[in-house]
Amino acid sequence: MDKNIAVKVDDLTVAYNYKPVLWDIDLEIPEGVLMAIVGPNGAGKSTLIKAILGILKPIAGSVSIYGKPYKKQLQLVAYVPQKGSVDWDFPTTALDVVMMGTYGSLGWIKRPRQKDKKAALEALEKVGMLAFKGRQISQLSGGQQQRIFLARALVQNASIYFMDEPFQGVDATTEITIINILKELRKAGKTVIVVHHDLQTVPEYFDWVTFLNVKKIATGPVKDIFNDDNLTKTYGINYKVSIQE
């Protein structure tokens, strides 16, 4: 079956100062996959997501979401940043953070209404955090903070989800909660793109994978391309997929 292309990246190059972080990336992400982006530290995994979302300005290249520029498809995309990218001592509650997921569809100036609050509460329940809705966010554990971020993205009710290391430093409960939600999203036909570090869990969690190390090494179904050869090309050392057993 020929699938629609959810995200298409053409000739994308991003650099900080003189050093290219991403070099000439071409990437097509089909609709409905649960995709891991893997690669060593400094491979540009987060940068790739940020460039797709317009947070970083690329030197060259273009990105399209279902055939149109990102700016035209804002409502279709949700983003879960790295947990460490914000100050969790910010004076606000868990519910309040999740409510931020509704801001995009509200647009400028308009305030969230009752139905937005309801959506936020539902998202909190989905990630198992309803009991913590009034909690100050600094008083949540790392895993709980991650689930709050996930809930915020769920509220956006998007078609494509980008997540930057959602499993980093979380406990087993949170990891299971998150992966179940990701699989549910896929079942609902959504596309989920995850920057992932733990190679062990790639075959178990994901059905699509992109190997990245400044350049794109490979992209495709996990069962076809998640092998020694690509791992070695990406990580530079001799990798043995003993992990697949």
């Binding site: 947070i55 940043p81 100050d87 305030r111």
Partner: peptide, 22 residues
Amino acid sequence: LLFWKEFKLLLFDADYTTTLGF
């Protein structure tokens, strides 16, 4: 008061604010 929501969003998470189109 007018831009309260936007101010709060930017203060907490600037990158996320960008992705929402603000």
